[in-house]
């Protein structure tokens, strides 16, 4: 990265941006931002700005990718060339974005009721317009809202967030600078209804008890994130109801 020395990430119990160790960044979600899509959501998660859109279900093409029992999901996660502070990145898929697209798809294969659309295809697009660490989690959180806003049936609205470690301290939802110098990063997606883990990745070093503690922190943060997701979905309808309230 910048090549400079590792900065002190936690000073007097507070993080560089003033957050407490278990504190999420501010999250805002808005639906209906891509008119052509059947469902869409825009998320601002700290300095991350991400748009997610859904097309379909449509006939899966080419024919050989069709599953006669259920719909398939195609997912594309991509970062804009101007998303970062420093470099200009070439657009197009790379190994990182291809992997993120795959694990994201697998999250939604778990919760979308695919068997209702045999032979169908659902396309899910996640475009990171500005990035500041944790874009895969924010992208999954936004994509879940985009899917739910389309009316495609789902067993639940998953959320995702990452826990990291600095020294011996677990910290919730790392931004880019924390991510660059952290000792571990563990992004997780969960179905809040069942508590089941739908995405789990980790790199760095964590003890078994740190993994458990991290998962508990994520579960707790999930209550906040789920609430924001649900409110974003209901807001447009409630606004219209409000218009005709006596």
């Amino acid at each position: 990265m910048s090549g400079s020395e590792k900065p002190e990430l936690i000073i007097n119990g507070k993080r560089l941006d003033g957050r407490m160790p278990n504190q999420l960044r501010d999250i805002k979600i808005e639906t209906g931002v891509i008119k052509n899509a059947v469902g869409s959501a825009y998320i601002e998660w700290g300095r991350n700005k991400i748009v997610a859109g859904v097309y379909g279900p449509k006939e899966a093409l080419p024919k050989h990718v069709q599953d006669p029992e259920k719909a398939i999901i195609k997912c594309r996660y991509a970062m804009s060339p101007f998303s970062g502070v420093e470099d200009h990145s070439r657009s197009g898929p790379n190994r990182r974005s291809t992997e993120i697209s795959k694990v994201t798809r697998e999250v939604f294969e778990n919760v979308v009721l695919l068997e209702q659309f045999p032979g169908g295809e659902i396309d899910l697009y996640i475009d990171v317009l500005q990035s500041d660490g944790g874009t895969r989690a924010a992208g999954i959180t936004a994509a879940a809202v985009a899917l739910a806003s389309s009316g495609i049936p789902m067993s639940d609205i998953p959320f995702a967030v990452s826990v990291g470690k600095v020294g011996n301290q677990l910290i919730m939802d790392m931004d880019k600078i924390e991510d660059n110098y952290s000792d571990a990063d563990m992004p997780v997606a969960i179905s809040p209804r069942t508590g089941e883990i739908l995405l789990l990745q980790m790199d760095g070093n964590l003890t078994k008890s740190e993994v458990s503690a991290g998962l508990s922190m994520i579960k707790e943060a999930g209550e906040t994130i789920s609430k924001i997701q649900r409110e974003a979905l209901k807001a447009p309808y409630e606004k219209i109801l409000e218009r005709y309230k006596e």
Partner: peptide, 9 residues
């Protein structure tokens, strides 16, 4: 310029 697939089916 990119014609992102999110922008149109």
């Amino acid at each position: 310029a990119e014609l992102l697939p999110i922008a149109s089916e």
